[in-house]
């Protein structure tokens, strides 16, 4: 089945449900952060699972949830990211899944047992406004595809129903939220006494309610700064753990300000960024320091694991029975904990 377009009406959307793609890297020198999905691997997974290019535009869902009514056409979709509760036409699907919907059916996504951000991808081309070459929504300005609200319409051009892809996806271990977040210390750890750095690495922090696409403030020990805060503003990386004058740490995320005048005690390594973003307000995390060299090795190891998983799910697997058999065969590699 292949119609020219599929149209879905948003009948409910929580806050910060937005169009996101692979983001717009390369523009931090103009004050523009990378943006893109908070869980960038989830976007790649959902796109791979429906046969799209990994960085294609999809919909990012917050814990507020999303409800869509298909009013025209039919389309395959995939859901990944946090473990959301997904239904189509009243039928419950897995948390990581490929399904299809057609005119007259309703898709719902509600916060499930774990995770903060879900991604919904459609087999086809999601029509979204571009800004500087990307549909990723910059949440403060609304530039890019934009924030979705009740009444908005989502148009998928060249939608396809790819029945051979239907079924739940395994949730690999690297997609689960992490308790221990790996960081490389610095680049401004010199603003902190040794005792404060030890506190940072040994005590626990709780994600506060001040959590949006820019970052998340942490509750925990106050990290006193040992000198006058007279540093000129320096560039900020996604994952920077920035400590304000009151000693409160904030982890900068997808829509972060590109520079900041507060010292960064540490920076979350790339492989742990997505799993950190899947923690919720109220969750407890600790930070583990590793060397920059080990961080590069960790990034390469993680990249290889994810590439193998994406290649596996990108290929249509035929019937569900075939796929279950294959899943059993490779469970030693990917874990076999199945989608919830």
């Amino acid at each position: 089945m292949n119609m020219m377009r599929c149209e879905l009406v948003v009948s409910f959307a929580g806050p910060l449900v937005s169009y996101q793609d692979g983001g717009r890297p390369g523009l931090m020198r103009f004050g523009v952060p990378g943006s893109g999905a908070m869980d960038s691997r989830a976007l790649a997974v959902a796109n791979a699972a429906v046969g799209n290019t990994l960085s294609d535009c999809g919909i990012e869902i917050s814990l507020g949830g999303l409800q869509l009514d298909c009013v025209e056409g039919a389309v395959s979709f995939a859901v990944a990211g946090g473990g959301f509760e997904v239904t189509v036409g009243g039928v419950r699907l897995g948390g990581w899944t490929v399904g299809k919907m057609q005119a007259g059916q309703r898709l719902t996504m509600r916060a499930g047992g774990w995770g903060s951000w879900g991604v919904l991808a459609f087999a086809g081309n999601v029509v979204a406004k571009q800004w500087l070459g990307s549909a990723a929504t910059h949440s403060q300005s609304g530039f890019g595809g934009g924030i979705l609200r009740a009444g908005d319409r989502i148009i998928v051009e060249k939608p396809e129903v790819r029945a051979a892809r239907d079924g739940d996806l395994m949730v690999p271990d690297w997609a689960r939220p992490v308790d221990q977040v790996r960081v490389v210390m610095g680049p401004q750890e010199r603003f902190f006494e040794a005792g404060i750095i030890e506190q940072f690495l040994t005590e626990k922090f709780v994600l506060s309610e001040a959590y949006d696409r820019m970052g998340v403030r942490l509750n925990g020990p106050k990290l006193a700064v040992n000198a006058a805060l007279d540093m000129p503003s320096e560039p900020v990386l996604r994952g920077s753990v920035q400590v304000a004058g009151d000693g409160v740490a904030t982890v900068m995320l997808a829509d972060h300000g590109t520079t900041g005048g507060y010292p960064k005690i540490a920076t979350v390594i790339g492989p742990d960024l997505d799993a950190f973003a899947q923690r919720r307000s109220g969750d407890v995390v600790g930070f583990v320091a590793i060397s920059a060299e080990d961080a590069v090795l960790a990034a390469r190891k993680c990249h290889a694991e994810i590439a193998a998983y994406l290649a596996y799910i990108a290929a249509p697997k035929g019937s569900l029975a075939d796929r279950l058999m294959q899943a059993n065969l490779i469970s030693g590699v990917f874990g076999d904990d199945g989608a919830a």
Binding site: P25, M28, S233, E234, P235, L237, G270, E293, A295
Partner: peptide, 22 residues
């Protein structure tokens, strides 16, 4: 490298850790 971000007294140079290292 991916991007260079100039600031008042410093530059940040980001890179792909699959392709190179610090």
């Amino acid at each position: 490298t991916i991007e260079v971000v100039p600031a008042y007294a410093s530059l940040l140079i980001t890179f792909d850790p699959i392709a190179t290292d610090h």
